[in-house]
Design a protein around this nucleic acid. Structure first.
Lengths: 205, 205
DNA sequence: TGCTATTGTGAGGGATAGCTCAGTTCTTTG
DNA sequence: CAAAGAACTGAGCTATCCCTCACAATAGCA
């Protein structure tokens, strides 16, 4: 019996509309509170207070604090697959467009709340279960990029796997950083320069 | 009066040798414990236990838990200036060497303990004071890179500031990630590919 | 309207972490 | 060697946090 499962499942599923509403209020409040106080100081009581419900209600829908964050993170991750990767133009001379699509996708994924994402990934004590899910999504994404690169005639790199991982990291980490603090580099500049750098890298010498 | 100062200062400065030794033992133990348990679960009692001193002793030299990590982080940051940046060959055709020096420097800075660095940066509740110190070092480093780029005849980019920040981020974040989990990409591949990508980017079209 | 299931409440239990302080041990110094 | 002060000890205080549970309020339905 996987105790890890039970530790993330809600203990009661909503049957009435107001219950579903309460659940959403809790999640919204949690997002705010985690951003404002960080994970450790973002206490369940604070979340309940912000959601204007009692602490008891919170524990009706989430078995523990981690589960609240897990739900938030799962929701984000599920949104984070590279859609439209299969409807790309892979004819010669279109590599820059392909790269731009990848960069835009990364930027879009950070539009909603980069602060929250940072906390979720960097501060939360993620369960093994959750870590696995995220890792799985990660390798899946790398494989996806690898396939696109493999199918494109302009790509000239010695090792596709390394290249896929490197450019994905480069694009995501830079985007992550810039979106969290866009004082030095604006979004347009980020897109332009990232596309330029990655494209030139893939074109080879 | 900056109370933040007092909150990070030791409450007693060592006068005898054994005291200085104890201080070092505490820091070494803290590094180990933070790596093993993370920041939150790396309790002061555990640190004291691992250092084989009593918890009271710990609080003779550090006013609180944060101060222990702050000291660790400051020490790291102080080591992290790009040395040898002023003795670079800036004649035409040497850009790749320059970039390689930068990449090597980043890798070297992660050699000692990438795990600890990760925890320090990602899990610790950093004080404003400390954040400022780190940010200051950061801009300093960007400026340093900017100057090197400005002095090199081969560099062709539209905006030096953006480029400096972008390549520094790219080099450091990728290094950070690979060193923390080198399963997919080895250090040699990292150096080779990073140098290639960044160099080609700087050379322009 | 009354009956039942669902939802909501919040004081407080239990656990644990950071930190204190009264007292002991070790070093230095005259 | 003896006195003074530096260094060290560790039981336990205080604060806080997660979470429970006995009860109250509300919604759905006959």
């Amino acid at each position: 019996m996987p105790s890890a499962d039970r530790r993330l499942q809600p203990r009661r599923t909503p049957r009435q509309v107001r219950a579903e509403l309460t659940r959403e209020r809790i999640l919204a409040a949690a997002a705010h509170v985690f951003v404002e106080f960080g994970y450790a100081a973002g206490t369940t009581n604070r979340i309940a207070e912000r959601a204007r419900i009692s602490i008891g209600s919170l524990y009706q829908y989430f078995p523990n604090k981690d589960a609240v964050l897990a739900e938030l993170l799962i929701r984000h991750v599920d949104r984070g697959v590279w859609r439209g990767a299969d409807q790309l133009d892979l004819s010669p001379g279109t590599l820059e467009q392909t790269v731009r699509a990848l960069v835009r996708d990364a930027i879009d994924n950070h539009q909603d709340d980069p602060q929250l994402l940072r906390i979720m990934i960097e501060e939360a004590p993620l369960s093994q279960e959750l870590l696995d899910t995220i890792a799985r999504h990660g390798t899946q994404r790398v494989a996806q990029v690898r396939e696109v690169l493999a199918g494109h005639p302009d790509v000239r790199v010695r090792d596709l796997d390394t290249a896929a991982e490197l450019i994905l990291n480069t694009v995501e980490l830079n985007t992550h950083k810039v979106m969290a603090d866009p004082r030095h580099i604006g979004v347009e500049a980020l897109e332009r320069e990232l596309v330029g750098m990655v494209t030139r890298y893939l074109l080879g010498d």
